[in-house]
Design a protein around this nucleic acid. Structure first.
Length: 216
DNA sequence: TAGTTGATCGTCT
DNA sequence: GACGATCAACTAA
């Protein structure tokens, strides 16, 4: 199985050149979690709302490695909240935090292995008007540059927890055609205070759409 | 521009 | 009952 590699190039569709996207297969998610995290950069998160499509290019992610990662929700085993993390790769794990925010994760690996990749920031590509309405803000740069912001912009909430990314409501896609090499940076994750922190945050250093969290 | 703080509630201990 | 994979508004410099 050939997997698309990180792609670069024009982030938004050129006028007259429609953005052609190919949905990622299940096998994309069934690999090593940090590998999936890195390869998610440059891919497109597609959210279907009725006949509208909201699309954002993934520019920042963090890997969470289940039982071997104290920062992971699944570190202490399976609970009702983190159940989706134990599903087969290619599902969406949405959790509620700080009493008012939702964050979206891509579940990776085989069934029973609670690894996931948190999507931290997107570059808005399509459906910006709806995103603005959802966010109540105008600046494209502020629409999706944080894990809770992008959930708000794409209208991802509790109901989307457990969504199959190989289905028809939310999926991740690559640009059709040949992929170019991407410049990828890594750093420690944002907001992690417990234990020795790993450099499992991956981002595109040249993108102005990464979250304001400070890399180290 | 950087730092601080309040909002707000599900989840787990 | 404490805490949190956050955000936005506010203040100080």
């Amino acid at each position: 199985m050939q997997h698309p590699s990180p792609s670069q190039g024009p982030h938004s569709p050129q006028p007259g050149r429609p953005l052609r996207l190919v949905k990622l297969p299940r096998s994309f998610y069934l690999r090593n979690t940090t590998t999936v995290a890195r390869y998610l950069l440059g891919k497109y998160l597609v959210r279907r709302l009725g006949n509208q499509r909201l699309i954002g290019r993934i520019v920042e992610v963090e890997a969470y490695l289940g039982s071997r990662d104290p920062a992971s929700h699944a570190y202490r085993g399976r609970t009702r909240r983190n159940d989706v993390m134990f599903w087969v790769g290619g599902h969406l794990y949405v959790y509620f935090t700080y009493g008012m925010h939702f964050c979206a994760n891509v579940v990776t690996c085989e069934k029973g292995i609670a690894h996931a990749v948190l999507i931290r920031a997107l570059e808005p590509v399509a459906g910006l008007e709806i995103m603005r309405r959802n966010r109540g803000r105008a600046a494209a740069r502020d629409l999706c540059n944080g894990p809770a912001k992008l959930c708000q912009a794409l209208s991802i909430r509790r109901a989307e927890n457990g969504t199959d990314l190989c289905g028809l409501s939310i999926w991740i896609a690559a640009r059709a055609g040949r992929a170019k090499k991407l410049k990828v940076s890594r750093s420690t994750r944002v907001g992690i205070t417990s234990g020795r922190e790993h450099r499992w945050r991956f981002y595109l250093p040249e993108s102005p759409f990464v979250s304001p969290g400070k890399p180290s």
